[in-house]
Design a protein around this nucleic acid. Sequence first.
DNA 1: AACTTGATGATATGTCCGTACCATAATGGT
DNA 2: ACCATTATGGTACGGACATATCATCAAGTT
Lengths: 211, 211
Amino acid sequence: MPRLVDHAERREQITDAARRVIGRAGLDAATFQAVAAEAGVSVRLVQYYFGNKDGLLAATHRAVVDASAARFGAGGAAPGTLPPPRDALRGVVAALLPLDAQRRADAVVLAAFHAAALTRDAAAREALLTAPRALVEVVAAQLDRARGAGTPGRGERDVETSRDAELFLATLAGLTQSVVAGHLEAEQALAVAERLLDHLFASQAGGPAPT
Amino acid sequence: MPRLVDHAERREQITDAARRVIGRAGLDAATFQAVAAEAGVSVRLVQYYFGNKDGLLAATHRAVVDASAARFGAGGAAPGTLPPPRDALRGVVAALLPLDAQRRADAVVLAAFHAAALTRDAAAREALLTAPRALVEVVAAQLDRARGAGTPGRGERDVETSRDAELFLATLAGLTQSVVAGHLEAEQALAVAERLLDHLFASQAGGPAPT
DNA sequence: AACTTGATGATATGTCCGTACCATAATGGT
DNA sequence: ACCATTATGGTACGGACATATCATCAAGTT
């Protein structure tokens, strides 16, 4: 066995470079040569580790998604304790909004991948939906808890609560977009999210306001 | 003068082809050859009318933005009448959400341009903000009307109302994203927006809910 | 010490794309 | 009838990029 090297570390070094390149100049700037130069290695090496360009991009995508998931897991899963629903949702907000430079950069990269996936095969588009679907369940469960419903079975949940969960996540996606585009500052986005929580916790399930 | 041709029509024929190509396969598939083939003209002709590739893309972008603005103008500006605020905001929802196939396709194209602009120079990124900034004013004005505030001057508006306006637009952006990604159907997105209107018209300005 | 094998470098190749250049058909004014 | 100008087609050139090929270095093993 000659010259053994930590493959995982090398791969991470390269996908990190790819993340920087994509965040700075977009997906189509992520050429083999640009990524290799950014990582300080040769083009051949990138090829060696990821084979295809698809391989490189897939690994980079997974890296940033995993980082996002790790942040979410770190913030949300306080072990043993059961935070009040509003705090739990505040945790979701804090985990998902791009509140610091690192997450902002990741959000740009994710947006690039997202846009690319829209014009891909149905399989790629389907992969975009797994995270939102899971999150809707998490959010709806918290809203159920807050509104005194127990843990309703599948399909038994109040329609308005489901809509509120979708509303919550769609708003977070929109706020992320606003922050990344530079239309809102992170604190403003946070304040808007807090305002949404005000609305959600003010009205009970099934009670629409009079027109 | 030889063989005069309607330039506007030819340009529209070509930008329409570009819109289809981008909507189907993404921005980087919008090559001269692909667009020319889709439009049924020669590559040279596309070059003749738009010179640069940047010219072609800029014209295409403007075409879809203009289409969007036209839809907004057509739906929103009922002349003379002054609809109740909630109906006015419903009009904004109906104008902005991708409720039919045409608008869905346009939304995909816009998302592609949006993602590309994120990793461009500051000027391109600034251009993304003009539409949202104007819309925030429109929405906030309706909320002021609904809440009995007159037409407050610049900066005098209630902070919560401003946040609600941002909330409204961010949610619409997020819902658009959800529909385009295939996570929500158009009717579901509409229902979620309606639910948000419930929340917005239930609470008055400055009245956060108790935690 | 030699050899095997994993890791890395340099470079060639074929393809696609943007753009420039050359050519020509059509048409309306003189 | 001719000519200038507009509109359009064909094609060539140069560059960038993904990928493949050849070559080399390093380090354990025997």
